[in-house]
Design a protein around this nucleic acid. Sequence first.
DNA 1: CGCGACCGTCGAACCGGTTCGACGAATCTG
DNA 2: CAGATTCGTCGAACCGGTTCGACGGTCGCG
Lengths: 342, 342
Amino acid sequence: MATIGDVAREAGVSRSTASYALSGKRPISEEVRRRVLAAAEALAYTPNAGARALATAQTKVLGLLAQFHEDEFAPAMMQYILGVTNTARDLGYDTLLVTEADGVRALRRITDSRMVDGVVLMNIAQDDARLPILRAAPQPGALVGLPGDCSGLDVFDLDFEEAGRVMVEHLHRLGHRELILVSQPEHVVERGGAYVWRLRDAALERARALGVTLHAVYGESRQPAVGRLLHDLLDRYPAATGLLINNEAAAAALPSVTYERGLRVPGDLSVIGRYSAEFAATFSLPYSSIESAPDRLGAMAVRQLVRRVESAQARREPFVVRFISPELVDRGSTAPPRPHSP
Amino acid sequence: MATIGDVAREAGVSRSTASYALSGKRPISEEVRRRVLAAAEALAYTPNAGARALATAQTKVLGLLAQFHEDEFAPAMMQYILGVTNTARDLGYDTLLVTEADGVRALRRITDSRMVDGVVLMNIAQDDARLPILRAAPQPGALVGLPGDCSGLDVFDLDFEEAGRVMVEHLHRLGHRELILVSQPEHVVERGGAYVWRLRDAALERARALGVTLHAVYGESRQPAVGRLLHDLLDRYPAATGLLINNEAAAAALPSVTYERGLRVPGDLSVIGRYSAEFAATFSLPYSSIESAPDRLGAMAVRQLVRRVESAQARREPFVVRFISPELVDRGSTAPPRPHSP
DNA sequence: CGCGACCGTCGAACCGGTTCGACGAATCTG
DNA sequence: CAGATTCGTCGAACCGGTTCGACGGTCGCG
């Protein structure tokens, strides 16, 4: 492989002149610049990433830490990852994807060794052990998901509280008075998945304020357990006329459950989910849903991260906590309740 | 951040001695080794990745090139990626995930700049434009998927030909004489997705040899188109008693189609799919299927890649083309055909 | 007791870039 | 026409590791 020394020799100039001609950081005569560019072209010169990183203290790589738990719905993760990698590339960065189970060790490794210029963390827990490490790291960090303590980091998440309120209000306005809310499995909460109770608590509070009965239950993340659960719920609360679903697996399982019970949506049951349009398309889910916008969240996190990486001034700005406001995408799965529900 | 110079000073030795004490590549007195390790510990020393890469010409990073096409089923991709990242980490490597649309440019960038020690390519096309680049690169490469020309690279894939034969033979043995095979959409083939016709052609040939009628059709990759297609097929070929599915989206769509038609599986219709156990669990697909083993394929590719990266001897070995033999996982969705099909 | 072998350590060079200060030549100013 | 500027280029140092050759001190052996 050609080095900048080879290019310089070929062009008949010094290494430093070649470097300046290529970077444009000092004035270089038109004649010399042409010769250097031609030499670089002829030798197919590409700067060595390690050498450049050593000299500039910049790697042009971002770290992306994602954790995969048995009980989470893996397909939903892909959209977040693509949002991050594609946006990073647009801004001139590559992405180091780390899926190691021991997130703390992984984070230490990539920050201490200076492999990355910045880090995006996903699957944020309420009391996430990685956060102290990231705050102490020399690189800036951005989170996709809301932890208990946001200090020292930029945070991006869907506004799950508002999402819960929007769901309840929408069905209340249509006349519904008894609803079921299916959340994620309980151990997602135990592991610190705060978004579960953020949506749940806000929904419960708004339901109380509006005089709506809301049965809030934990769900399952797998078939066939989640299908059974849905059947159980519909048996247990026959008077409920609306179903709110904050659980991708449950949403994906619902169509067969309604077929089996002969239920019409929205005739017999109104449904609102919380997932992305991409997810809805993939599984052909015919339910109105709060858009979770994974690609947008990933993109926002990367853009802010890169701003801080590239500008010392931006690095001094106060940290942001930014919520995407929930948008209800209407797919026609809600209607006024039947006078007598089935 | 502490450098090896800081460690050396703290331990009262030269930089080279500190390096040897940490790497063990030369004999060092027990006393000095202790002092150096203590100093490294005290200063929380971690080698700078760029500097090490420059000195050793090794980055301990593997590249993973994956392309996402609109018409492919994204959830299935995640398993391959996890197989690669997890195996790489076990072997001491991190993974650079590149999802850039222009795969040729992406591959050039990461190999020419020496960001990675080796590359895994996914979504291989019959005549893949990235292959010449990878063959010419100084780093070794491994493919997940079979291209037209395998020279100069290690290749790993499911044996789709054998998969097609196994599907047909299995149903023939049970007494079926008329089958439908649903493949991927036609433009997957046009883009060079050879696995589609590899399975299809082998299935057709075996069907002919066994005197079985096989209706082979291209599918769709999205709902609701794929659901409609399945209905059409069952209308068009009422005498068919078995359904072979080489198309994740079609498999995921089949349960609601059979509900809607009141068909019993395997009573009225025998079904064999081709997807991973993980996929089956996520969507609760009750069909016997040829295991596509994405995690195993990713792991195999990485292991071979790392062998070549780390051993000059392994680098001289002949290239391998290794097929995973298709395993039919029985989920009870096949049975002898009804005397008169519905 | 003297010589060679070996062990542990050090200094220097190298990997391939970037960047700073200096220097010679051309240009401008008085 | 001498002196001060400006422009374009060069050499050297630096980033932070690894590695090679050399060197001084111990030890074993004849």
